[in-house]
Design a protein around this nucleic acid. Structure first.
Length: 271
DNA sequence: AGGGTGACCTGTCGGC
DNA sequence: TGCCGACAGGTCACCC
């Protein structure tokens, strides 16, 4: 579920409320993708200094380190002062003086990992290889063009590579390519400078729009206050196989690339 | 080195 | 109705 917009919306929905809280207790459910990396009790007494985001990770800064929280495919966070006992698919919970933060993740591809600092090996293993943030100033046309040059892989596949640019997942990769009118099978390294620029702008446009409407709720995404997003109502191609293109009326097609579904308009995205 | 595949895990949906 | 395979918002380890 969670790509950059959903992760950022989640962050915004509880960062203020949890800032300054002291950790009272940490409870674990079934194992997530990676182990926590410390005794849960070791976190007790630490203070939450703030919540940042890097790529699709939430970084919960603590007085004694940080937690890297990833939502995987099916994860969502909830922050509330009134919480029932941990239920099915709830695998991490942190009780604080200002409320309880809880991760629900049916598929358990998500993770909560403790690191002493953003630079230690536990954090660097997850963050060290990441490329630029798509909405920050270092994601430039020059960088993008240079990084794509020489790549023979399909541009759709390359957009999902976090070493190239972070935060773009399957929904927004499809949507950005549609907006830029680029065929998902086009070789990344053969895109003209003009098309690379168009694609960069399309990535930023689609992510900003999704952020503005609270992200995409396909099945069950909601922010830490339980509020859903509405970007799914505006999707041009994702999950619209066989439906008419909203621009030209051609029927949206699918194909498989890197074991993921690609959706595109055969007319608007001829090349 | 870049590119492609399998693996992780659970739920849901469509087809027979 | 029931079973079975395919697929789902991610990303890492591994192969050539």
């Amino acid at each position: 579920m969670p790509e950059l917009p959903e992760v950022e919306i989640t962050r915004q929905s509880f960062a203020q409320a949890i800032q300054g809280a002291k950790i009272l207790r940490v409870n674990l459910g079934k194992a997530l993708r990676w182990p926590l990396g410390c005794e849960p009790s070791a976190l007790i007494g630490m203070q939450v200094l703030g919540v940042r985001r890097r790529a699709k990770y939430l970084l919960v800064d603590l007085s004694g380190g940080l937690l890297l929280v990833h939502l995987g495919m099916s994860g969502s966070l909830r922050f509330s002062s009134a919480m029932p006992a941990m239920g099915l698919h709830e695998h991490f919970e942190m009780q604080t003086t200002q409320g309880t933060l809880r991760l629900k993740d049916p598929r358990r591809f998500g993770a909560v990992v403790y690191a002493r600092s953003p630079l230690d090996t536990a954090a660097q293993k997850l963050l060290g290889h990441l490329g630029p943030e798509p909405l920050e100033s270092d994601f430039t046309v020059a960088y993008f063009k240079n990084t794509l040059s020489g790549k023979t892989a399909a541009i759709k596949t390359v957009l999902l590579d976090a070493r190239v640019v972070v935060g773009v997942g399957n929904i927004y990769a499809n949507e950005a390519l549609f907006l830029a009118k680029i065929n998902p099978k086009a070789a990344a390294g053969k895109l003209s400078a003009e098309r690379v620029q168009r694609l960069l702008q399309a990535i930023q446009q689609v992510l900003k729009r999704a952020l503005a409407v609270g992200g995409s709720t396909l099945k069950d995404f909601s922010n830490a206050q339980g509020k859903e997003g509405y970007f799914q109502l505006e999707m041009m191609v994702y999950d619209r196989e066989g439906e008419p293109c909203r621009v030209c009326g051609s029927l949206v097609r699918t194909l498989r690339q890197g074991q993921r579904s690609t959706f595109y308009c055969p007319q608007c995205q001829k090349r």
